[in-house]
């Protein structure tokens, strides 16, 4: 039963047990909801989830609803890393050594308003797992630009034709610069990779960071059924490579795409990129190629296929 080629590669064997419930209030086709569903398969019910202002403030349950089978604590937008660190320290103070503290922040709560607290906690090597589910803009409030918004994307605060002129902030480089024990990227189209990275992270001590791309059909202007497709295309076009960094030094590509699709495949499905001309696409391609090249260099990957053709 099943296709073994298929099982070995992209989906793999996924933990059956669920620690998230149906009936949550995420929009149809929500990548962030799927992110957490997969993440919870690794965290199970012995984690405390700290959520700053983000889509998950709503998804996790409007009072009195709850959709996660573990404790969820909400906190102000910029405060997640510090509140999470405090919870961990508080749990230790009251004698709980085991409970994992996991921050679940959007890209705003990570790249933008949360960055100071994130940097502080990372520098102190607080014993927490910080998960950024990145939908590349302020989506809970309706697609306002964040510093995770990629080059060329329109948003309600960078409307076309004044699309975002700057590349996405390189949060992984920032985290690597903190020399934290573990930082990794993941995305929902690669569930086994995602779950194994969460598992890897919770087996470690100290500050751990996961950057998870979570497409948002509402904000990206993509068909609702293409959420996972976009996640996959992001990897296959190399705009969102899957890799991990240990101690800020050892880079490793965790998935090397055997096909290299042109960026147009990815952009074409999303209205936010609809005003890009050939010149902008070329610029985007240069950004991606540069980043990929750097990544290959750091991870010691010397395959020919890493060169853009």
């Amino acid at each position: 039963m099943g296709n073994t080629v298929f099982e070995e590669t992209l989906v793999g064997k996924i933990e059956q047990d669920e620690f998230m419930l149906s009936g949550h209030n995420a929009c149809p086709g929500c990548g962030a909801a799927l992110t957490v569903r997969l993440m919870m398969k690794a965290l199970k019910d012995r984690a405390v989830i700290v959520i700053p202002a983000s889509c998950w403030s709503i998804i996790s349950g409007v009072n009195p609803l709850r959709c996660l089978e573990t404790v969820v604590l909400h906190c102000p937008f910029p405060a997640a890393a510090a509140v999470g660190s405090g919870i961990k320290k508080g749990l230790l103070a009251v004698g709980d050594q085991d409970t994992q503290v996991v921050i679940l922040a959007g890209d705003g709560g990570t790249f933008d308003i949360g960055l100071q607290g994130l940097s502080g906690a990372a520098e102190r090597n607080e014993d927490i797992l910080f998960v950024c589910y990145d939908n590349e803009a302020y989506m809970n409030t309706g697609m306002q630009k964040s510093s995770a918004t990629p080059y060329g994307s329109a948003s309600t605060t960078t409307p076309a034709p004044r699309i975002k002129p700057n590349p996405k902030k390189d949060i992984m480089a920032i985290m690597a610069a903190h020399q934290i024990p573990y930082a990794a990227t993941a995305t929902i189209a690669f569930p086994q990779d995602l779950i194994s990275k969460v598992n890897r992270a919770i087996d470690l001590k100290g500050f751990r960071f996961l950057h998870i791309l979570a497409p948002c059909p509402q904000g990206w202007g993509s068909p609702v059924e293409k959420t996972v497709t976009l996640s996959r295309l992001a990897v296959l076009t190399r705009i969102f490579p899957l890799f991990e960094i240990e101690d800020g030094k050892r880079y490793r590509l965790t998935y090397h795409p055997s096909v290299h699709l042109p960026l147009e495949n990815y952009f074409g499905l999303q209205k936010r990129f609809s005003s890009l001309g050939p010149r902008e696409v070329e610029q985007a391609r240069e950004n991606v190629d540069y980043y990929w090249g750097e990544l290959c260099r750091k991870s010691g990957c010397s395959e020919d296929c890493c060169r853009y053709s």
Partner: peptide, 28 residues
């Protein structure tokens, strides 16, 4: 089942079933 954000697919290794109480119809 693996990709359903709404946990609306029941799958125990055989043919999946859809739980229409929760399926939002996204089509993933």
């Amino acid at each position: 089942w693996a990709f359903c954000p709404d946990l609306a697919v029941k799958y125990l290794g055989g043919i999946p079933e859809f739980n229409l109480d929760y399926c939002k119809g996204c089509g993933i």
